[in-house]
Simulated scan of single mutants.
Amino acid sequence: MKIIVQKYGGTSVNTAKSRSMIIKNMIDAIDDGFKPIIVVSAMGRKPEPYATDSLLSLLPDMKKANLRNKDLLATCGEIITTVVVSEEIRAKGINARALTGGQAGIVTNENYGDGKIVNIDTNRLMELLNQDVVPVVAGFQGMSKSGQILTLGRGGSDITATALGAALNADLVEIYTDVDGVMTADPRVVENAELIETVDYDEVFQLAEYGAKVIHPRAVEYAMKADVPIAILNTQKGRYYGGTRIEDVSQDIYSEKNFSAVTQIDGCSQVDIKFTDLKKEDKLFDLLAEKEISIDMINIFPDRKTFIIDTDKQNVVDEVMSKIGLEYTICDGFTKITIMGRMKGVPGVVAKIIAALYSNNIFVHQSSDSSTTVSVLVDTKQAKDAVNVLHTNLIK
């Protein structure tokens, strides 16, 4: 049996016209000899009524809401979509079955808001496929062993799709979105961004980690471990139009191209600590870890240390700093921009990047690098210009 998992995001399911393409892509896959499983997200984005954020806004105080109740509410958007899509498929004369994540066999832990899949029982899905029934599965969710409904965190529908693909030993997972595939930059930021036709699991994982929004990094991990190829496709253009193929790809050792893509992560805050007491500073990182605060771009100087955090965690970091009694400042309004590529052993890479930005009056607040990335921190108000400058100077 040739199994294909097709996943559709919010902008692919929010109108009848968009959903008609789901059915077309599904029928094309059936004509190619596949047994399809459809994974769907909630319809659209806020303020559309069935979007996840719209549903959560019904809560009297989202920050103080019971986590179990919050997850229960958040999963409703995907369930609505499964019913609508499955009924539209049935209207075309094809049998379909709407399933929650739990009904599809997805078992999670009980970490509300960011559940992790611990097992997938594929029996029900295989039974439906053997009966020529198309399962339409609610993405972004699963059920714990004790029967609690949980979400898998933002981007969780991608995780649902690739986790199912891995568990079922699928031939292919198709992720449908509103762009043509993985690009050399966000096409909404860089007009002349180019499509990357084929990319290795490791490279696309890094792209996702550093801000590319086409696929969740955890979703890449599931596919990579099971060696299930992924195709990133434009919903409206269909499964035969280009896209990006993600799989094990042998690197061209003769290629002279050092840079492959530019990504960005907004909503960053910069923390600057003056050296006063090493014992207090050592305690800081343990406390931040306990609060599940991720820190990045750590730079250490003789008189201070600097790193960045997510801006939405700023209040928690403030509390920890004040409790310890450190002398510090936290400033928000920053964007982390990362240039991807093969840079190990290539001299002058950072200098070239900094020079390109400075020549366009874009100030770099700090930087970090590895063998495959160089990241710079810039003011968010200059981020779009910075991404375009780097794309023009390094990739085009």
Rank of each mutant, 00 (worst) to 15 (best):
I3V: 14
K7W: 04
G10I: 02
S18D: 15
I23K: 09
I27C: 04
D28G: 06
D28P: 05
F34D: 08
P49H: 05
P49W: 09
T52W: 01
T52N: 07
D53H: 10
R68C: 05
K70H: 10
G77C: 04
G77H: 06
I80M: 09
T82P: 06
E88L: 07
I89A: 01
I94K: 08
N95M: 14
I106Y: 07
V107G: 06
D114E: 13
K116T: 15
T122F: 00
N123E: 15
E127Y: 10
D132Q: 09
V134P: 00
P135W: 02
P135H: 01
G139T: 05
M143T: 07
S146G: 14
I149N: 08
G156C: 04
A161L: 06
A167E: 04
N169S: 14
A170W: 07
D171W: 11
D180H: 03
V182W: 02
T184W: 01
R188L: 08
V189F: 06
V199I: 15
D200I: 06
D200M: 05
E203K: 12
F205D: 02
L207Y: 07
Y210Q: 11
R218G: 03
A219W: 04
V220T: 05
A223C: 11
A223V: 12
A226N: 05
A231K: 11
D248P: 11
S250V: 15
D252K: 04
D252R: 08
I253Q: 15
Y254N: 12
K257G: 11
F259K: 03
V262A: 05
I265Y: 03
G267M: 03
D272N: 14
K279T: 12
F285A: 08
E292R: 10
I293Q: 04
M297T: 04
D303P: 10
R304E: 10
E319Q: 14
M321Q: 03
I324H: 00
G325V: 07
E327W: 14
C331I: 14
K336P: 00
R342I: 12
I354T: 14
A355D: 14
A355C: 13
I362F: 08
Q366T: 13
S367R: 13
V374T: 02
S375D: 07
V378S: 02
K381Y: 14
A383L: 01
D385Y: 08
A386F: 06
N388V: 01
V389M: 10
V389A: 09
I395R: 00
